[in-house]
């Protein structure tokens, strides 16, 4: 097994505030990797560093063996051009807490947009694939609806289909169910479970402990910008070793 994501001493600060204070971790290909922790612990920031939406200040971050956002030549590091960063991001799908669907496009157009505009797929092909993907997330009948005409859970499932349309090798989920009404969470988690079963490598920032326990292959508990505890989700969630993990879990479980 090779590491899909490899972080070595990743640091990130916003101005004077240090959000990530040296993260070391590895996400294996094909596994579902859950990140949990209190808000402000840096888990979302770390996720955003993986596709270079945030620039890291120190350390190294690799996706599929390739350095993210930089190129190393000898002992010198070069920043990548915007177009090169865009090329790296093609292979990394991302799902946001607030969906961020394009409101001026229908569900189908949202899913078609990136393949057509970024990969140059022809429209008929992209449309057919988009219909397949919408069907896969259970929204075949909503293809012609605009995001404002969909519920939160439906929007998030369209967002997942949109990310999948680029055939990513890695999917990032940033608290995908946190903005949803409780009764809509299940539909989104079902789609994610299916995706996990199909062998997709997933990094999931979540507060859904049930999902982490059931679907997760590894789990990391972060607090204050560092990894506090990691391991098998069932192990960590039922028998946390660290005091801070115990305190956090006693509040959320």
């Amino acid at each position: 097994m090779t590491a899909m994501v490899k972080a070595e001493g990743v640091h990130k600060s916003f101005g004077a505030v240090q959000v990530l204070k040296g993260i070391d971790l590895e996400v294996q290909t094909g596994e579902v990797f859950c990140l949990i922790g209190p808000s402000g612990s840096g888990k979302s920031t770390f996720l955003r560093c993986i596709n270079h939406l945030e620039k890291i200040n120190a350390g190294r971050l690799y996706v599929d063996g390739e350095l993210v956002g930089y190129r190393q030549k000898g002992d010198k590091l070069y920043e990548l051009k915007d177009s090169e960063v865009a090329l790296q991001r093609r292979d990394i799908g991302m799902v946001f807490q607030r969906f961020n669907l394009f409101p001026h496009m229908t569900a189908l157009e949202n899913v078609m947009e990136a393949p057509v505009q970024v990969k140059g797929t022809n429209k008929a092909q992209a449309k057919e694939r988009a219909r397949e993907l919408l069907d896969r997330v259970g929204l075949a009948d909503k293809a012609g609806n605009y995001p404002s005409q969909l519920s939160g859970g439906q929007q998030q499932r369209v967002a997942i289909a949109r990310a999948l349309a680029m055939d990513p090798k890695l999917m990032l989920f940033d608290e995908p169910t946190s903005a949803l009404d409780p009764e809509l969470v299940g539909d989104v988690l079902d789609v994610m479970r299916d995706l996990a079963e199909s062998g997709m490598t997933m990094v999931v920032v979540t507060h859904e402990m049930g999902f982490a326990r059931e679907v997760g292959d590894s789990l990391v508990f972060m607090d204050g910008g560092v990894v506090v505890e990691s391991g098998d989700p069932r192990e960590v969630l039922t028998n946390p070793q660290h005091e801070r993990t115990q305190a956090f879990l006693s509040k959320v479980l």
Partner: peptide
């Protein structure tokens, strides 16, 4: 979030602005 979503899909600055 719109710009971020477009960038995350691999769209360039120009395309993000235009589309």
């Amino acid at each position: 979030g719109q710009t971020e979503a477009a960038h995350a899909l691999g769209m360039s600055h120009g395309k993000t602005l235009r589309r």
